[in-house]
Computed example of a mutant assay.
Amino acid sequence: MTNTTLETGLFPLTTPRLSMRPMVKADWPLFHRLHTDNAVIAQCFDPMPLDEIETRFEQRLTPWSPDAKHWLCLVIVETATKTPIGVTGFLLEQGAAEVGYILLPPYHGRGYGTESLQAVTDFAIHHGDARIINATVTAGNLSSARVLEKVGFQLSRIEPDAFSIGGVFYDDWIYTYTAA
């Protein structure tokens, strides 16, 4: 690994139906929608003020390298239609990664979450030297839990009352993938 930003030749990551590329300023409408659509955020987080969403967006535009202290944020694009459908990525820290993804509702249930998560997990292992990869799911989000399990993640612990959405506390389900 080097301390420089990854060469653009590594992107886009591709799967049979998707490509994933670093986020750019033109992706603001997608990012905004993913953070304000009630169907998207209901099992993830409370609505945020616009300035907080803007700050998160700006942070994700920062060029990434394996020694970065911020998320690698990739836009998921449906290859056949060239439509941006969500975001995925990871935060790397001392050989461990935290992965995440979020998709627009019309693209739920099509296997895109699994396909993109597998690609990002492989990338974190092969280009970020991650040995352990974690993902956090809000208790009750069975669809996300199934996606993680399909990729090979296993429920490793439950953190009781770890997160509040709409004033209700939920457990966090922590899933872990260990690289061979």
Rank of each mutant, 00 (worst) to 15 (best):
residue 61 L to Q: 02
residue 61 L to T: 00
residue 62 T to E: 12
residue 63 P to D: 11
residue 64 W to L: 01
residue 64 W to G: 04
residue 65 S to E: 11
residue 68 A to G: 07
residue 68 A to H: 06
residue 69 K to V: 13
residue 70 H to C: 12
residue 70 H to P: 12
residue 70 H to M: 06
residue 71 W to I: 14
residue 71 W to S: 13
residue 72 L to N: 00
residue 74 L to T: 00
residue 74 L to M: 09
residue 75 V to Q: 07
residue 75 V to P: 07
residue 76 I to H: 01
residue 77 V to L: 04
residue 77 V to E: 08
residue 81 T to P: 03
residue 81 T to C: 07
residue 83 T to F: 00
residue 84 P to C: 03
residue 85 I to F: 03
residue 85 I to D: 07
residue 89 G to L: 04
residue 90 F to N: 02
residue 90 F to H: 10
residue 92 L to N: 05
residue 92 L to G: 01
residue 93 E to V: 13
residue 94 Q to V: 11
residue 94 Q to T: 13
residue 97 A to I: 02
residue 97 A to V: 03
residue 97 A to Y: 02
residue 99 V to A: 08
residue 99 V to G: 05
residue 100 G to Y: 03
residue 100 G to L: 07
residue 102 I to H: 09
residue 105 P to E: 11
residue 106 P to S: 06
residue 107 Y to N: 00
residue 109 G to S: 11
residue 109 G to F: 08
residue 110 R to S: 10
residue 110 R to P: 03
residue 110 R to H: 15
residue 110 R to V: 10
residue 111 G to R: 04
residue 111 G to L: 10
residue 111 G to M: 09
residue 112 Y to E: 09
residue 114 T to S: 13
residue 119 A to E: 08
residue 119 A to R: 05
residue 121 T to Y: 00
residue 121 T to L: 13
residue 125 I to P: 08
residue 125 I to A: 04
residue 125 I to M: 08
residue 126 H to E: 15
residue 128 G to S: 01
residue 130 A to R: 07
residue 130 A to M: 10
residue 131 R to H: 14
residue 134 N to K: 14
residue 134 N to S: 14
residue 134 N to H: 14
residue 135 A to V: 02
residue 140 G to Q: 09
residue 140 G to E: 06
residue 141 N to A: 09
residue 141 N to M: 07
residue 142 L to H: 15
residue 142 L to E: 15
residue 142 L to R: 13
